[in-house]
C-alpha cells in the first residue's frame, strides 16, 4: 500500500523533467564522465535499512554511467561519521548523499565540501542549516498521523498507549512527538502511560516494555519510531502473553518475521529504494547544476540552482498480507 504517492510522483516527475530538459539542451551532460563517483555516507552502516536505499542509489548511478560507493562508520558515533565523511571527500567524489547522524555538527563539514566543489545532499536525517542542496525523506508527520489513526481504529479512542523513542535523531523525534500531539488534539481520551528512550537498542526496549506492562496492565498499543527497539518490544509482549497492538516505523528482517507471525500489527516503512534513487538524482543534479538555466537569481547570488529543500519519498504500510514483498534476502538475491 502506498501513501503520499502523489507527492512522491511529483518529486519523481520534477527529477525526470529536469533530466529531460537537460537532455534536450545538452544530452552529453546527462551521463557521468568516466570515473565520476558518488558516495552514500551513513552511520551504523550494518543496519539493514541502508541496503535497499543503496540499491536505489546504485541503480540510478548505473543508469547514468556513474560509480556508486557505500561508505560511513559502523558505529553510532558522530566523530567517526564526520571522520569518514571527510575521508570520503579526500577522494574527490562528484557528490555525497549523506545521512547526518546529527544536524549541527555536520554544518561545517558539509559547507566545506560544497565550497570545495563537491555536491552534498541529505536523506532520512537532515542538516538544515548547512548549504546542502536537497533533503529526501518520508513525511514523518504523515507516518505519525497514520499510526495514530490505526491505533485508534484497533483499540478504540479511550485506551492506553505508550511510545518508545530515540531522542536526538530528528526523524525519530518527529514521529514520536507528532503522534502524541495528534492523539492529544484529536483523541483526548487516549492516555499516554509510558514514554521510554530505548535508542534503537532491542535489549533496552525489551526491558522498558517488560516494566511498562507490569506498571500498566491495560496497555493496549505501542508506537515505536524505529525497528531496532521494536525487536525487543515484541519479545517482551510475547513473553508477557499480552495482546498489544505494536506499530513501528522502518523494518528489519526480524520485525518482518514478527509481522508475518501476527505479533507486530504493522510497520510504516519509508520507500527506501525511491529514497536512494531520489537521493542520487538530487546529488547528481547538484553536481551538474549547469543542466538548466532557471528563472531566478542563482547567477548573481551564486548559489546552486538545483535546490530541492524537502522531497518526500513516501512510505509503505507493511502488514501480514504484503510482508513477502519486503523480504530483504529475497530482494538481494542476485544483487550485490
Amino acid at each position: 500500500m502506498e501513501f503520499n504517492k502523489r507527492r512522491s510522483l511529483i518529486a519523481l516527475a520534477i527529477a525526470g523533467l529536469v533530466g529531460l530538459s537537460g537532455a534536450a539542451s545538452a544530452q552529453s551532460k546527462l551521463a557521468c564522465k568516466p570515473g565520476e563517483t558518488y558516495v552514500m555516507n551513513v552511520m551504523v552502516s550494518a543496519h539493514p535499512y541502508w541496503v535497499p536505499v543503496f540499491q536505489g542509489f546504485k541503480q540510478a548511478a548505473e543508469a547514468l554511467g556513474c560509480k556508486a560507493v557505500f561508505s560511513g562508520t559502523p558505529d553510532y558515533d558522530i566523530a567517526k561519521q564526520i571522520a569518514s565523511f571527510e575521508q570520503d571527500l579526500v577522494k574527490k567524489p562528484a557528490g555525497v548523499l549523506l545521512h547526518p547522524m546529527q544536524a549541527d555538527p555536520f554544518i561545517n563539514p558539509i559547507n566545506a565540501a560544497i565550497d570545495s566543489g563537491i555536491a552534498v545532499t541529505t536523506f532520512a536525517a537532515d542538516s538544515p542549516k548547512s548549504k546542502r542542496t536537497a533533503y529526501v525523506t518520508s513525511d514523518n508527520l504523515a507516518e505519525a498521523k497514520f499510526a495514530a489513526e490505526e491505533i485508534v481504529k484497533k483499540v478504540g479512542d479511550s485506551s492506553q498507549y505508550a511510545v518508545l523513542e530515540n531522542p536526538g535523531q530528528s526523524n525519530h523525534d518527529l514521529r514520536v512527538t507528532a503522534l502524541i500531539a495528534y492523539m492529544d488534539k484529536n483523541y483526548p481520551k487516549m492516555k499516554l502511560v509510558g514514554r521510554q528512550a530505548t535508542n534503537q537498542d532491542s535489549n533496552a526496549a525489551y526491558q522498558a516494555v517488560t516494566t511498562m506492562l507490569q506498571a500498566n496492565p491495560k496497555l493496549a498499543a505501542l508506537w515505536i519510531p524505529e525497528a531496532g527497539s521494536a525487536e525487543g518490544a515484541v519479545a517482551a509482549v510475547k513473553e508477557a502473553g499480552k495482546k498489544i497492538i505494536i506499530i513501528h516505523a522502518d523494518v528489519t528482517p526480524a520485525t518482518l518475521s514478527e509481522i508475518k507471525a501476527g505479533n507486530i500489527h504493522m510497520a510504516l516503512n519509508p520507500n527506501q529504494g525511491v529514497q536512494g534513487f531520489l537521493g542520487f538524482m538530487n546529488t547528481f543534479l547538484a553536481a551538474h547544476q549547469d543542466l538548466i538555466d532557471p528563472f531566478n537569481d542563482y547567477k548573481v547570488s551564486r548559489f546552486n540552482p538545483m535546490q530541492f529543500p524537502s522531497m518526500d519519498n513516501g512510505f509503505a504500510v507493511i502488514t501480514k498480507d504484503n510482508a513477502d514483498s519486503f523480504d530483504l534476502a529475497k530482494y538481494m538475491k542476485g544483487r550485490s
Binding site: 553510532y76 558515533d77 546529527q102 549541527d104 555538527p105 561545517n108
Partner: peptide
C-alpha cells in the same frame, strides 16, 4: 567547539 553541539551520547566506546 568543533561540532557546535553537545551530545549526550557522545563518546560511547
Amino acid at each position: 567547539a568543533r561540532f557546535g553541539s553537545a551530545q549526550p551520547t557522545f563518546g560511547i566506546g
